[in-house]
Each structure stands twice: as C-alpha cells, then as structure tokens.
C-alpha cells in the first residue's frame, strides 16, 4: 500500500475516465454548439473548455476523503462535564434572514448545524426543531434544499420521545448535508459548512472552558489536529476566492494553536478480556491559560464576523 501520509485518495486509474470525460464533454458541448452556433453565436471551444476544466477539478475534489469529528462530539463532552444548556450562547435562529452571499450562508449553515447538535444533545426538542428549520431555510435560499428535506423534520416530530433517535437523526442529517453538497458539485460550500460547524463547536467549548474545566481545556487543545486537517483540506482548493476569507481566519487561528504542545509516544494496542481492542499512547497535551484565552477571544471575533 502507499506510504504517503495524506488524506487525498491515491488512485491509479481515475485520471483516465476523467480525461475521457473531459474530451467527451468538450465533444458534447462542441456538437451542441455546432448545431446552435448560428442562433447564439457562442464560441464552442471556449465554453466547452472552461466547463470541462471545472468539471475535472470538481471530480478531483469529490475524490478526497476528508474528516474531522462532527460538532456533536464536542457537545457530548460539554454535557458529560455536567454543564447546563445555555441557549443564549447559540446563534439566534431569527438571524437566518440576514445572511446573503454564498460564503456567509454556508458558514452559518455549519453554525446552525453545530447549534442543532448542541440543542439535541441536551434533548431540547423545540430548540432542535427551530435550528433545523433555520438550517433548512438557509439551505433553501442557497438552492441546496435537497440536503435537508422535509422528511427530517417529520422524523424529528415522530421521534420526540427518544433522545437517542433525536441524536441519530441530527447526526445523520449533518453528515448527509455534506455528502449531498459534495455529490452535487458544491464541494467548496461543503468545506465552508464543515469549517462553520467546527468553529461553532470550538466557540461553545471555549465559553464553558472559561470556567476552568481541565478536560474541556484539553479537548480544545486537541482541536489543533482538526485545524491542521481543515487547513490541508482548504489548500486542495488552490486559493479559491470564496474560501479565501475562511482560509485566512483559520490560518490566524493556527498561529494561536501553534502554542499548544502535543507530545506522543509509540502506540500501544491491547486486548481486553472480552476481546475489545484498546488503542492509546502516553501522549500529553499542554496549553497555557493564556493560550486558551487567546484562542477563545480569536474564535469569538471570527464567529461574530460571520454571524453579524
């Protein structure tokens, strides 16, 4: 197997079908244009070429396997630490009408997704419904309403008694949202949604960690991994204009996360009596209170800009 350590798929043969498709797209559009050029006077080669390049880039981006933990996992830790639900920390659902422009809409779709995860983790059913409705409205305005279909609200309505069902429906909806965007040639939007969701989860955890919770503080420090992954993913888009602002924000955040020290040793794999595998190492994460404060201030500033 390949020894290269990157999340991008290493594939020997997908270049060929893309190449063939590129040619065929050009041919197809060229044929179409040759039939209609008298009416429209459109230069066939230029139109076909541009679409083909975009198509090839999109196909390449669709082939990337990329992952960071969903916001639900951070919400889970906040609840586990015994904190109470605080709806005032979340982005107001009423602000949904304010968001125009693809970047802001996409980031806020991620933010609403994270807020939805947080509300559902605390079994706040009405709030969960409100956040899902807000996310759905935003998705509709972005023309990606297929991502959050009415059946999800119906499923939430029908499963109000079970917290586990609520969590599963919300987790599935969040995962499917990004799958939908990716498969419908909105990979850049998907990247912004993921970044928005991650940012909101980080923002919420910093609000609670300010009370001096060491477990939460360590989890925030561990977000260094996710931030590095996000930046690598954004780099794949080769400086796309609509990702530039978020990319810069993440880079500024990285400067602060660079102060987080993570040391690790070799991985140990053990088996428990019941056969369950336990993986771990003697890693340690060190983040000063000052670093936490800097990160908390920075993420609040970035978030404020997007939710305004």
């Amino acid at each position: 197997m390949s020894t290269k350590k990157q999340s991008i798929m290493k594939k020997k043969s997908w270049i060929i079908p893309i190449g063939v498709a590129l040619v065929s797209t050009t041919l197809f559009i060229a044929c179409e244009d040759s039939n209609t050029s008298n009416k429209n006077n459109v230069p066939a080669v230029q139109t076909g070429g541009k679409d083909s390049v975009e198509l090839a880039k999109m196909a390449q981006l669709q082939k990337i396997f990329f992952s960071i933990p969903a916001p639900m996992e951070m919400a889970s830790l906040i609840k586990q630490m015994g904190y109470k639900y605080d709806g005032k920390l979340l982005n107001s659902t009423e602000s949904v009408t304010r968001y125009t422009g693809e970047t802001k809409q996409a980031v806020n779709l991620g933010i609403f997704g994270a807020d939805l995860s947080y509300a559902s983790m605390f079994d706040e059913k009405q709030e969960s419904m409100n956040y899902l409705a807000a996310a759905q409205k935003l998705a509709r305005e972005m023309g990606v309403d297929g991502a959050l279909q009415d059946q999800i609200i119906e499923r939430l309505n029908n499963n109000q008694q079970s917290r586990d069902s609520l969590l599963n429906i919300v987790s599935e909806a969040y995962g499917d949202l990004n799958g939908y965007l990716k498969e419908n040639n909105r990979v850049e939007i998907s990247a912004l949604v993921i970044a928005g969701g991650w940012m909101e989860a980080l923002y919420l955890s910093t609000r609670f960690a300010a009370t001096g919770n060491e477990t939460l503080k360590a989890r925030i420090a561990e977000q260094k991994y996710s931030l590095d992954n996000l930046l690598k993913y954004f780099a794949e888009f080769n400086g796309k204009e609509n990702l530039a602002e978020m990319n810069n924000d993440l880079k500024e955040l990285k400067i602060l996360f660079d102060a987080v020290q993570i040391s690790s040793s070799s991985t140990e794999v053990k088996k428990e009596k019941d056969g369950m595998v336990v993986i771990g190492n003697s890693s340690s994460v060190t983040m000063s209170d000052e670093s936490l404060k800097n990160i908390a201030t920075k993420i609040q500033g970035i978030r404020s800009k997007y939710i305004a």
Partner: peptide, 29 residues
C-alpha cells in the same frame, strides 16, 4: 453508535488506494 462524521464516500475501481486521517478522542468507544 452516534455517527460522528461526514459521509465519506467515493467511487473507486480495482487497484485503487485511498487514505483518510481521522481523529479519535480518549475515553470513547
């Protein structure tokens, strides 16, 4: 289990190799 990831899928053909970097947190199964 609670699903904690995006839908990570791609169309592959025989001979393909793919890689994914994942973060796993302590204290979880």
């Amino acid at each position: 289990y609670v699903q904690n990831d995006n839908f990570n899928s791609a169309v592959l053909v025989p001979g393909d190799e793919a890689e994914l970097l994942l973060t796993f947190y302590s204290g979880k199964e």
